[in-house]
Design a protein around this nucleic acid. Sequence first.
DNA 1: AAAACACATGGTTAATTTACCAAATAACAT
DNA 2: ATGTTATTTGGTAAATTAACCATGTGTTTT
Lengths: 111, 111
Amino acid sequence: MKKNAQIEKEMALIEAKANVLKALGHPTRLWMAEQLANGEKCVCELAEFIDADFSTISKHLSVLKQAGVVEDEKRGKQVYYRLKVPCILKYMPCVEAVIKASVKEQIDLLG
Amino acid sequence: MKKNAQIEKEMALIEAKANVLKALGHPTRLWMAEQLANGEKCVCELAEFIDADFSTISKHLSVLKQAGVVEDEKRGKQVYYRLKVPCILKYMPCVEAVIKASVKEQIDLLG
DNA sequence: AAAACACATGGTTAATTTACCAAATAACAT
DNA sequence: ATGTTATTTGGTAAATTAACCATGTGTTTT
């Protein structure tokens, strides 16, 4: 494989990964993903707790789906969403560690 | 603790986490973070491989810093950046699994 | 002290994202 | 068939982001 082809491949992978992280990088979408960790839910069940237009909710789910984080299945009138790769949330403790480190820094600054 | 206070606390945490993921949700920034997994680098070392204005690179680093993903230290003329919480990249295999699942789906679709 | 170097910051513009509303679709109930 | 419920889609305006250029700041080098 030529060098340039190799680099382009790496860039494509980076972009794909960034896209997944970006999809989870919105409060509403991250919350949705965390809810789905407890098992599939229909849109209406998620919507119950989100203060936003139904169309907004639907679009957020579509972003998650597009990124490959969730998959959906229509059953009757409802559409059920579930995590496609559950490990995606195993990460959160580390993300929280990042936050804790920052907060700790702030506190230390104050003495 | 009152119920509303509890919910607000949860929302604040979700927002903080989403912010970290969002910071990593850009190809350039994710690439930077991955480079730093091999040890600290100065801005100039990172810039060498990024085709963008120096100011753009600086701003991306500032986003990562703001999110608490990296920390910086000025030594002489140069500023060195390093990962603050290295586990942040342990996650990538799972992110890649998300991508693989999607790609596999595409392939299966084609028969 | 002046020039050179390594970064950061402010300003601007274009592109992207997000949210809402209205309208479309799809499945079930009547 | 018609109405109703669940969800998606298209359109649009406001907010955010990302890139560039020009300029500013701090640190060496001369």
